[in-house]
Amino acid sequence: MTLIGLAVTLLGFVVAFGSLGVAESTGARMAMVLAGIVISLIGIMGVLTPAYQKTWIYRNR
């Protein structure tokens, strides 16, 4: 899950960065950048954090 979380987080950046080559208008670029931010947040909060919570010390004791 760690790798998936990191991949999703990085994917968000790739989507945002890709808007520079894919989109021409400011509106389309803004939409892609916002989508990229949401994807990255899902990667951190939705995938990575729950995966790491399982390994935390208070869960293991």
């Binding site: 994917l11 968000g12 950046f13 960065f17 950048v33 931010i37 990255s40 947040l41 951190i44």
Partner: peptide, 16 residues
């Protein structure tokens, strides 16, 4: 948009 691109870079790239 330029500012949001910076935010996307921070969250997506710097975090990773």
């Amino acid at each position: 948009v330029a500012q949001l691109m910076g935010v996307a870079t921070l969250i997506g790239f710097v975090f990773t």
